[in-house]
Amino acid sequence: MSTFVTSYVIFWLVVALYVVQLGGRQRALLERMASLQLRLQESRRQQFENLD
Protein backbone atom coordinates (compact mmCIF):
# COMPACT_ATOMS: atom_id res chain seq x y z
CA MET A 1 0.00 0.00 0.00
CA SER A 2 1.41 3.36 -0.93
CA THR A 3 2.31 5.93 1.70
CA PHE A 4 -0.41 8.22 0.50
CA VAL A 5 -3.20 5.70 1.02
CA THR A 6 -1.73 4.72 4.38
CA SER A 7 -1.72 8.28 5.56
CA TYR A 8 -5.32 8.84 4.43
CA VAL A 9 -6.38 5.70 6.25
CA ILE A 10 -4.54 6.70 9.43
CA PHE A 11 -5.99 10.19 9.22
CA TRP A 12 -9.57 9.01 9.04
CA LEU A 13 -8.95 6.31 11.60
CA VAL A 14 -7.83 8.91 14.12
CA VAL A 15 -10.80 11.13 13.31
CA ALA A 16 -13.14 8.13 13.64
CA LEU A 17 -11.58 7.35 17.02
CA TYR A 18 -12.37 10.86 18.20
CA VAL A 19 -15.94 10.64 16.90
CA VAL A 20 -16.44 7.30 18.64
CA GLN A 21 -15.10 8.77 21.85
CA LEU A 22 -17.49 11.70 21.43
CA GLY A 23 -20.33 9.22 21.08
CA GLY A 24 -19.20 7.43 24.23
CA ARG A 25 -19.31 10.66 26.17
CA GLN A 26 -22.76 11.41 24.83
CA ARG A 27 -23.93 8.01 26.05
CA ALA A 28 -22.43 8.57 29.48
CA LEU A 29 -24.19 11.94 29.59
CA LEU A 30 -27.57 10.38 28.78
CA GLU A 31 -26.96 7.72 31.39
CA ARG A 32 -26.31 10.36 34.01
CA MET A 33 -29.41 12.29 33.00
CA ALA A 34 -31.58 9.20 33.24
CA SER A 35 -30.21 8.17 36.60
CA LEU A 36 -30.73 11.68 37.95
CA GLN A 37 -34.38 11.60 36.88
CA LEU A 38 -34.82 8.16 38.35
CA ARG A 39 -33.44 9.35 41.64
CA LEU A 40 -35.85 12.27 41.68
CA GLN A 41 -38.85 10.10 40.89
CA GLU A 42 -37.78 7.47 43.41
CA SER A 43 -37.42 9.99 46.19
CA ARG A 44 -40.84 11.44 45.49
CA ARG A 45 -42.39 7.96 45.51
CA GLN A 46 -40.77 7.23 48.83
CA GLN A 47 -42.15 10.45 50.26
CA PHE A 48 -45.65 9.33 49.32
CA GLU A 49 -45.08 5.87 50.74
CA ASN A 50 -43.91 7.37 54.00
CA LEU A 51 -47.11 9.42 54.14
CA ASP A 52 -49.15 6.26 53.85
Binding site: S35, L36, R39, E42, S43, Q46
Partner: peptide, 24 residues
Protein backbone atom coordinates in the same frame (compact mmCIF):
# COMPACT_ATOMS: atom_id res chain seq x y z
CA UNK B 1 -28.40 20.00 38.50
CA UNK B 2 -26.86 16.99 40.19
CA UNK B 3 -25.38 19.12 42.94
CA UNK B 4 -28.76 20.81 43.37
CA UNK B 5 -30.68 17.55 43.48
CA UNK B 6 -28.22 15.92 45.85
CA UNK B 7 -28.69 18.81 48.25
CA UNK B 8 -32.50 18.57 48.09
CA UNK B 9 -32.84 14.82 47.88
CA UNK B 10 -29.89 13.14 49.57
CA UNK B 11 -29.51 9.50 48.56
CA UNK B 12 -31.61 7.27 50.80
CA UNK B 13 -29.29 5.27 53.02
CA UNK B 14 -31.44 3.82 55.78
CA UNK B 15 -34.07 2.41 53.49
CA UNK B 16 -33.79 -1.18 52.43
CA UNK B 17 -34.56 -0.30 48.86
CA UNK B 18 -31.75 1.90 47.63
CA UNK B 19 -31.49 2.91 44.03
CA UNK B 20 -29.19 0.62 42.10
CA UNK B 21 -26.56 2.21 39.91
CA UNK B 22 -28.07 2.54 36.50
CA UNK B 23 -26.61 1.45 33.24
CA UNK B 24 -28.03 1.39 29.76
Amino acid sequence: LEIHVLADHPPVVNEVRTIPPLSL
